[in-house]
């Protein structure tokens, strides 16, 4: 496996790990809206403080969170710079022949990058402390009401769970095929975009073929284990809200009130 993947589950037994995945998922979802309510230094400080507490509670090393920021760092820096040079307002802090940096620009840049950072770290907290299986289950159960309007929730959840199951397998397979073609002198690193895409064909074709083969065999194996869609199926995994899950409601309301009160 390559470098750490964003969204990888880090097994543990912290308070956050033990929360019901549905509660976590809902909380993080609503929290994202909350981020957009923050509009001044004190509200952002509250969000930062909250995220810091969550990181502490998760008992996961800070370095891993830095790792999850890395892939989006470029976007954060780019938008910050854009805001820095484009936004006008307040006192001019720095004047160059090309652009002028205003006080408001600095504020905007800081807020925008904060928003990104908090968003990414919060999403990482969710995925680091919740196994993908739990997430799928949570999603299936939260979407359960949609069954009434004939959305095939069970099938979608099974597909997602199979996808989760096979991502690492296919990833390994990709590496294998890539190595085989590299050993045959494939040049994947130079040339223009079209050349590079073309260079990947000897990797994609075998990968597709093998995925189809896998899919076919898996379908057989599922049938051999008496799978026939959702009819008469029971469910092994059962999610149950506990006291600490309800505490999230209180925490969320607290955050709403504090941010509502402090925002300008």
């Amino acid at each position: 496996m390559s470098r750490i993947v964003i969204g990888q589950y880090i097994p543990g037994d912290s308070f956050l790990h033990r929360l019901d995945p549905r509660a976590k998922l809902l909380f993080v979802f609503l929290f994202f809206f909350l981020i957009f309510l923050a509009n001044n230094i004190s509200t952002y400080l509250i969000l930062y403080l909250f995220v810091a507490i969550c990181i502490l509670l998760s008992q996961i090393r800070v370095r891993l969170f830095l790792g999850s920021i890395k892939p989006v760092l470029f976007i954060i820096i780019l938008t910050s710079i854009l805001h820095l040079v484009m936004t006008k307002g307040g006192a001019a802090l720095l004047t160059t022949p090309l652009f002028t940096v205003y006080e408001e620009g600095v504020r905007q840049a800081a807020f925008i990058s904060s928003r990104f950072l908090i968003l990414v770290v919060m999403a990482s907290i969710l995925t680091f402390t919740t196994s993908s299986l739990d997430l799928t289950d949570a999603l299936e159960q939260l979407l359960e009401p949609l069954k009434k309007i004939r959305v095939p929730v069970h099938e979608l959840a099974l597909m997602m769970s199979i996808a989760l199951r096979f991502i690492p397998t296919l990833w390994e397979e990709t590496e294998k095929i890539k190595n085989a073609q590299l050993a045959r002198g494939a040049n994947l690193e130079s040339g223009n975009i079209f050349k590079r895409l073309a260079a990947y064909i000897p990797i994609f074709i075998p990968l597709f073929l093998s995925s189809f083969r896998r899919a076919e065999e898996l379908a057989m194996a599922m049938e051999a284990r008496a799978y026939r869609g959702g009819i008469g199926r029971t469910k092994y995994r059962l999610l149950q809200y506990k006291g600490k899950d309800y505490s999230l409601i209180v925490i969320f309301l607290l955050l709403v009130i504090m941010i509502g009160w402090l925002r300008s």
Binding site: I177, N179, A180, I201, P202, L209
Partner: peptide, 18 residues
């Protein structure tokens, strides 16, 4: 030395593509 060493990986038929 990459070009001097040939490798036939496990199940090499799964790497055919053309």
């Amino acid at each position: 030395f990459r070009s001097k060493v040939g490798v036939v990986f496990q199940y090499p038929e799964h790497q055919l593509f053309a």
